[in-house]
Design a protein around this nucleic acid. Structure first.
Length: 430
RNA sequence: GGCGCCUUGGCCGAGUGGUUAGGCACAGGUCUGCAAAACCUGGUACACCGGUUCGACUCCGGUAGGCGCCUCCA
């Protein structure tokens, strides 16, 4: 199994199974409904974990939630903790509704404060960090390897807004002293405060996995400074940290990155409700994980059309009858083992559909949370009766009545199709 | 200013130094009371300019355009 590694800018070969593959993926900051772009690393992480398990690895996925942060304070003055808790629930619901199950652990930053404080303490002791007036900053100048993940040259990094407490403008906060208006805080050797953004991931990842693990994932926009800083913190303690770094491409909307701050985001909730979870998954499946995806109604329409095509296929193949069909693992494994090329896998699925390899297709779709397209919905009795009355009207050549009944069936949420075999019609949920 | 990525037929989107990607849409056809579904047929695309090569969409250089990061961001 090979995956593109941001750190080396090349493909990394994972150790052979069954060795553990421990994956830490960065999750959202919770202060509003998560947008569809946030779903990409979630979906990728789940798919990858499940694929690795299928391939014989012992794979675990830890997906963190950032529940203390300036955005949250700003969004809910005086009740930031309540908002964070509420938005965390939204996130769990919305990602849960994608039907992929859940990561093995979903740690929250606020639950990891002791580990974070301990981590910072070690950085201070070893001279990699310094406390100033209740804040603690990481000393970038002391890190000769700084920039190796993102390719940034420390001397070229644009200056941020001046902060007189910092020794160097590039230093970043590990611990922030409580400011007026902030309604949550924790005790620390440096006074009351709360964690900086980057340290939580180093602390939580190492709490879950120890000082080194196999894969760290997240959005491409996190490479710098977030992941660079995580790497710097852990490296400062002599830890390898992540062996392979995976960064998924951004969703774009109207030619720009979709993001909350640009205000062009569409919620996971909204997209799933509008297009259905299968279409959303197929939308992600159709583009390689490292590439940007232009988000548009047209693309979702195309995804939905493919979902319908697979669903229609299983309608005709009488699901459950898989005698004599071997599953064609060999056609899929090389594709997904090579940097997890899901678009090419999708092409294989279409080929299997053409060749009526329904056992393989059902198995493969199931791997990606799309097993439901192979399930046939049973129409309720009243709809079946409408269809029977329509069949009778048709045989009596009363097509006006037949069309009227078709309208009733449609209004009940079903589509009736005439077929040659018994009972002469087929009912499909719309 | 620095770091990095991208440009494929109407749309989405893989891939390869020389052989059909695939899907969606569209058109025609078969079937059908009509429709839907299904099936058949229909387009040799790879930003531009050079170079390397027997041969480049695929390698190298440049040009144009677009995107991401360098500030919270999946």
């Amino acid at each position: 199994m090979r995956l593109y590694n941001t750190l080396t800018r090349g493909l990394a070969e994972l150790p052979d199974p069954p060795g553990p593959i421990r994956m830490y993926f960065c999750g959202p900051t919770v202060y509003q409904r998560a947008h569809i772009g946030n779903a990409r690393p979630f979906v990728l992480g789940m798919w990858l974990r499940d694929w690795l398990r299928f391939r014989g690895y012992t794979a675990t996925l830890v997906h963190n939630i950032t529940d203390v942060n300036d955005k949250i304070y700003d969004a809910a003055p005086g009740r930031s903790a309540e908002l964070a808790a509420e938005a965390t629930e939204w996130y769990l619901q919305d990602t849960g509704d994608l039907g992929l199950g859940m990561p093995d652990e979903l740690p929250k930053a606020t639950d990891a404060v002791p580990e974070i404080v301990d981590f910072i303490g070690k950085l201070v002791e070893s001279g990699h960090a310094y406390p100033v007036e209740g804040d603690v900053y990481f000393r970038v100048a002391g890190d000769s390897g700084y920039g190796r993940l993102s390719g940034q040259r420390p001397d070229q990094v644009e200056e941020q807004e001046p902060n007189p407490l910092k020794e160097d403008p590039r230093d970043f906060a590990l611990w922030k002293a409580t400011k007026p208006g902030e309604d949550t805080s924790w005790d620390s050797p440096w006074g009351k405060g709360r964690p900086g953004w980057h340290i939580e991931c180093s602390a939580m990842a190492e709490a879950a996995f120890g000082p080194s693990f196999e894969i760290h994932g997240g959005g491409l926009d996190l490479v710098f400074p977030h992941h660079e800083n995580e790497l710097a913190q852990s490296s400062a303690l002599g830890h390898e940290f992540a062996h392979v770094w995976t960064h998924n491409g951004m969703l774009e909307f109207g030619g720009e990155k979709m993001s909350k701050s640009l205000g062009n985001d569409v919620s996971i909730r909204n997209v799933v409700d509008t297009w259905g979870r299968e279409a959303v998954l197929l939308f992600f499946l159709g583009t390689h994980w490292r590439k940007p995806i232009p988000f548009s109604d047209e693309v979702l329409v195309q995804a939905q059309a493919q979902v319908d095509a697979f669903r229609n296929f299983f309608l005709d193949e009488r699901p459950g009858d898989e005698e004599g069909q071997a599953i064609l693992y060999d056609e899929l494994i090389p594709i997904l083992d090579d940097d997890f090329n899901t678009p090419e896998a999708l092409a294989v699925f279409h080929a299997w559909r053409d060749r009526e390899e329904w056992a393989s297709l059902r198995w493969a779709l199931g791997l990606f949370g799309l097993g439901s397209v192979a399930e046939i919905a049973e129409a309720p009795d009243e709809v079946v009766q409408l269809a029977e009355r329509r069949r009778e009207a048709r045989s009596a050549k009363d097509f006006g009545e037949a069309d009227r009944l078709r309208g009733e069936i449609d209004a009940a949420g079903w589509e009736v199709r005439d077929v040659a075999e018994d009972p002469g019609f087929r009912l499909v949920r719309k």
